[in-house]
Nucleic acid binder design. Structure first.
Lengths: 135, 135
DNA sequence: ATAAACCCTGGAGTACAGTCTAAGGTCAAT
DNA sequence: ATTGACCTTAGACTGTACTCCAGGGTTTAT
């Protein structure tokens, strides 16, 4: 079992952030010791890793909460309900994926158009790179 | 040339958002008419599309500003400088790409583990899906 | 045994990204 | 010529996601 500072270090977040996430129902330590210290399990490590990952790709804490809530509500919901919810999220993820690929392509076009030398970069612009793409 | 409401409708943002972006140096209409109305060009349409796309994949307005500023500062900077900056951004984009693929995989594992029927979804959890992955 | 390093709660403060309101000017249609 | 839909600014307000602080208790190392 990890204390809050240990999990915080592991996940590269602050203690305050973990307590903030707890207040908003994203992650609750399974136990507390006699002094009231939070004690986090292995599962909590996975959980915070999922949260950080989802956050990084643009899910809000609210959306992440919904995703994680699937775990809590699983017994009350049918497979059908969950499949529908998850498939809706997958389609959002696919949109994000397409968008990030578009951005990457723009940046790569820009980078490769750039000779990398010392001359002024008169023709290096994101917008030019974007407009050269057939999207 | 488009008026603010027209560009707003095109980009699915509010007029206020466009003015807010302007205040923060992201997009400035090339012209104003006699009454002081903002008039946006074709380039501005591309620009707002880039902004929305970058935002969607998790860039902050500040980061987007930096990306777009390449255009403005191009003459003062060498190709070398710009290439370095852009390549750094590409590596951030690659991280985001990897992360969103991880999320997508979790969701897909979850979805396909789900029979889709009417029974309670006892084994449908994001965390189970995550822990089944070899990452 | 005592200081440093950790933990607790509650609440205030901050940065970012809008969003809304007030008070007024402009434009197009009836 | 006047109504309604648009535009202007400045500034107040909101929601999200932290971040910090005060005032206290606990644990660990010397």
């Amino acid at each position: 079992m990890l204390k809050i500072g240990e999990l915080a270090a592991l996940a590269s977040v602050s203690r305050d952030t973990l307590r903030f996430y707890e207040k908003h129902g994203l992650i609750t330590p399974g136990e507390r010791n006699d002094a009231g210290y939070r004690l986090y399990s292995e599962t909590d490590v996975h959980r915070i890793s999922f949260i950080m990952g989802a956050k990084e790709v643009g899910f809000t804490l609210n959306e992440i909460h919904q995703l994680l809530e699937l775990e809590v509500t699983k017994d009350e919901k049918s497979c059908h309900d969950i499949k529908q919810f998850v498939d809706a999220k997958i389609s959002i993820v696919n949109q994000r994926l397409a968008e990030i690929k578009r951005i990457k392509k723009s940046l790569q076009t820009l980078s490769s158009a750039c000779c990398g030398g010392d001359e002024p970069a008169t023709h290096c612009t994101i917008l030019e790179a974007l407009s050269e793409q057939t999207n």
